[in-house]
Write a protein that binds this DNA or RNA. Structure first.
Lengths: 346, 346
DNA sequence: AACCGAATTGCATCCGAATGCAATACTGCC
DNA sequence: GGCAGTATTGCATTCGGATGCAATTCGGTT
């Protein structure tokens, strides 16, 4: 008894196939196949015999073979770029879990240099993923390459102006508008803007959002410098800002929390400024460290949970019904009144 | 000219197969297959004709079909658990890139509750991944299930005592030994230990490492509390520690940087203690926020770059040569002398 | 120009599961 | 008990590319 089990369980290099199970159970391969499907018809007796045999042999349907015949890999590609943002990791896990719940696996692609992108696209096309969710930059040319292959795409926190693609994003402009409104309302008149990488859509949306609103409110004293979303450049940018203006502005609007934190540290350590008494500093994202007591950054938190949920659902819908028209969903950020800035009283 | 290109490029729902390319180029399907392989023999003339046809049709070999016949999916499963650790995201990206360089794709699995694990294993077995790299808890029973299927496994930052499995880890004990030695050398005599989740191997290794060394040095005043690796529990743990002891210890050893940061904030804000004058606080990992000026945590940095490199290589080797015996590699952490603790002068 | 060995190419088959269709086994009903 | 109608089951084929083997072509020799 146990010897039989051992023999089949141990080191049986060759994995059991549906034919093996069929033979063991004395039924046809089609029967086995049907038992391991959802809607297929199979009598209880059949089901029991097959499952018993399958169990004995340690059989598991081969998803590769299944994918070949059904033309559905049940995999989606998730493309990310530099995770330095510190925000994405959470996104990634949440997304993976959402997809998993729907029986969909995530094939991960991490871009480093932009040159990787064509390799990446090649790879994901080869793997016949059912859909693509990207938080990285895609040229519209690349986007259409994927779409022409009939693969639905959902952009995460970016939109392609010229292309009709679905997207889920946080409304960066709206968030910045809130921040600016609060700061100006509290009397700040001169501003420093710390932008992110020049090629980051997110950074561009945030900084132009802020600038536009400042302009609308008649604020003209605005200086911009730019970093790479990281802590160190946050510090460097602040120093640069002071140097450029000759003195500290009333407030600094950083394109993300990490750089805001860098600014706070630089302001305190290197310029002997008190935050928020001498200067207000705000960020964006609502990452973990923004809550740390030493910073308590005033920021706009992205509703990651709802955003990932939404993005996953949006992609899955389009996989199941390719005819669905594109949809762009924008989520409002959640204002977080930290103590890194003087705001109008609530 | 362009019309032809358009016609084939646009919305041609059905993807071109090697047969299509063969027909277009007037050669056999095997020829096409050979052109798209590495070692296969094909004349230059053949290659050119096929590539031209393939290009015209937008052909890309189907990795699914290829995987079926070659018995190699060229995918590895990477399993992670709660990323709250803040350390793993970086790991994930680095790993993905390493594998990608070797033509291997990453199928990502994110565990939330432990119950997911059997589903996860099931899924990764179905996808016939060539290897598994896990940074999540695997029972040895589950490990053997995977290994019996002939799939090499590499554990990341954990080892299975009872099972012969390859692993790459940071030497947590050694790191703790350094921290303790430094602290005791600088005169600290009473200690608080802030552990992580009880089921975390990493946390266990770190705390027992610290405790063992403390014991060896004859320190008996040691109080332990435990959290979940997060900032909030870091704070709560510190408070709990004070309450439990009645007063603050000379030093606190936290199982990771994030909790160390929580402790620092709690010490300063709620207990009016100066770090490191009144109390020394150390962590582990060397995450980004540990470097922020407000904390500047004394810690041990994991050499993530080398560790991921090593883990990827180790797994790839075992995929290519399944007979390779298990290997356990431990990397020394890098001591980081921050200002969150008084240490012996260098 | 004839010939030998090496390099190319094509043929046929295989990987493992899904599925349309036909055959068979059941169910309920009169 | 017989029959229509439905639920199961098996057969044969399919997905797209890889590969052993045989057939063919090519290059270099003498």
């Amino acid at each position: 008894m146990s010897r039989v089990a051992d023999k089949s369980a141990k080191k049986d290099r060759k994995r059991a196939t549906s034919y093996d199970v069929a033979r063991e159970a004395g039924v046809s391969q089609s029967a086995v196949s049907r038992v391991f499907q959802d809607g297929a018809s199979a009598s209880k007796a059949m089901r029991d015999r097959v499952l018993a045999a399958a169990n004995k042999l340690g059989y598991r349907p081969n998803a590769i073979a299944r994918g070949l015949i059904t033309q559905r890999s049940n995999m989606v590609a998730v493309v990310i770029s530099k995770l330095t943002n510190l925000y994405y990791p959470e996104v990634l896990v949440l997304l993976t879990q959402r997809f998993f719940e729907h029986g969909i696996r995530v094939l991960l692609f991490a871009l480093d240099r932009e040159s990787d992108i064509s390799n990446t696209i090649d790879a994901l096309l080869q793997y016949r993923v059912d859909g693509v969710l990207t938080a990285a930059m895609f040229e519209s040319r690349e986007l259409t390459a994927v779409e022409n292959a009939g693969i639905p795409v959902v952009l995460y926190n970016r939109t392609a102006r010229d292309s009709r693609v679905s997207s889920v994003r946080c409304d960066q402009e709206e968030g910045e508008r809130w921040l600016v409104e609060q700061l100006v309302g509290a009397g700040h008149r001169s501003f420093g803007i710390v932008a992110g990488p020049e090629d980051s859509v997110v950074s561009i949306e945030r900084t132009t959002g802020a600038r536009t609103e400042l302009e609308r409110l008649g604020i003209v004293d605005v200086t911009t410098v730019s970093g790479d979303f990281g802590y160190d450049t946050g510090r460097r940018c602040f120093a640069e800002l002071i140097e450029k203006r000759g003195s500290a502005p009333d407030a600094v609007i950083a394109a993300n929390d990490v750089m805001a934190i860098g600014c706070i540290d630089e302001a305190r350590e290197a310029h002997d400024l008190s935050v928020p008494n001498d200067i207000s500093i705000v960020g964006f994202d609502g990452v973990g460290p923004a809550r740390y007591a030493a910073y308590d950054v005033t920021t706009v938190r992205q509703p990651v949970h709802r955003m990932t949920e939404s993005a996953a659902k949006m992609l899955i819908e389009r996989i199941e019904n390719p005819e669905l028209s594109p949809e762009k969903r924008a989520f409002s950020g959640i204002p977080v009144r930290g103590s890194s800035a003087r705001l109008v009283a609530d």
